[in-house]
């Protein structure tokens, strides 16, 4: 129970951010109107995804420095959780776009970057499933994970800033910046970021432990 405090924190933060996100007061902005509440759901999911995928790359780097089965499992499970969060982020963004832009999807640099990032990690899963030998799979997928992350960073964080984008926060559209994210919104936004990230950690933790148990059972059967 003593190690469970962060799980309690996750639940509290998520309930707080969902309730306050839906009921709290938000500034009235043209075009955005009530959809500005998506800031409490969509943006924290992408933040959480970035943090979780970064953790995955860190695990891959650690694996290459000092190979171990556990590190490989962690890298794999964090990548999977990252994909779940990315899909959630795409879905919430798509619903939001339907009500503010009038379309589910447009060809926008930021949207394309997000879609390609999801493709990269899909390719990571395909690569893992196509190598049989365990050690070889661990090493090769670690190499691809680092390579793909380095290729995805310009896609997500640099390229969209260089061009005009419809997405809030770029090209003069209202969004995540100092003058329109007022302090009431920060009070809900930051807890939401921490909450979604911790939820990702939690999911990863459960699935990684499940994998370890499976490995143990398998070893027992062999013995």
């Amino acid at each position: 129970m003593r190690n469970a405090w962060w799980k309690v924190l996750t639940v509290v933060l998520l309930i707080y951010s969902v309730v306050m996100g839906l009921l709290g007061t938000v500034p009235r902005l043209a075009i955005l109107n009530e959809t500005i509440r998506n800031l409490y759901f969509h943006v924290p999911m992408w933040f959480g995804m970035t943090i979780i995928l970064f953790a995955s790359v860190v695990y891959s780097v650690l694996y290459l420095r000092k190979p171990s089965d556990r590190l490989d499992v962690w890298a794999y499970q964090t990548a999977r959780t990252g994909i779940v969060l990315a899909v959630l982020g795409l879905a919430t963004g798509s619903v939001w776009a339907r009500f503010t832009w009038g379309t589910w999807w447009t060809s926008d640099p930021r949207l394309n970057g997000a879609a390609v990032a999801v493709l990269i990690y899909g390719a990571y899963l395909v690569l893992r499933s196509s190598i049989v030998d365990e050690q070889q799979r661990a090493r090769i997928s670690a190499v691809y994970n680092i390579f793909a992350f380095c290729a995805a960073i310009p896609l997500l964080f640099i390229l969209p800033r260089l061009t005009d984008s419809l997405h809030p926060g770029a090209g003069g559209n209202p969004g995540f910046s100092q003058y329109d994210l007022d302090n009431n919104m920060r009070l809900v936004f930051y807890p939401a970021v921490i909450g979604w990230t911790l939820l990702g950690v939690w999911i990863t933790n459960v699935s990684a432990r499940l994998t370890f148990v499976k490995h143990k059972l398998y070893e027992k059967q062999l013995a």
Binding site: V116, A117, I120, A123, V126, V132, V143, P154
Partner: peptide
């Protein structure tokens, strides 16, 4: 590097485009 990775895997002929496309897209854009 992608071709080096794909060469290690089992079905490398299909894997090459699958791994390569996402990495190439920023350059292609």
């Amino acid at each position: 590097l992608i071709s080096g990775i794909a060469a290690k895997a089992a079905n490398s002929n299909t894997l090459m485009p699958v791994l390569g496309f996402p990495v190439v897209i920023p350059i292609l854009l």
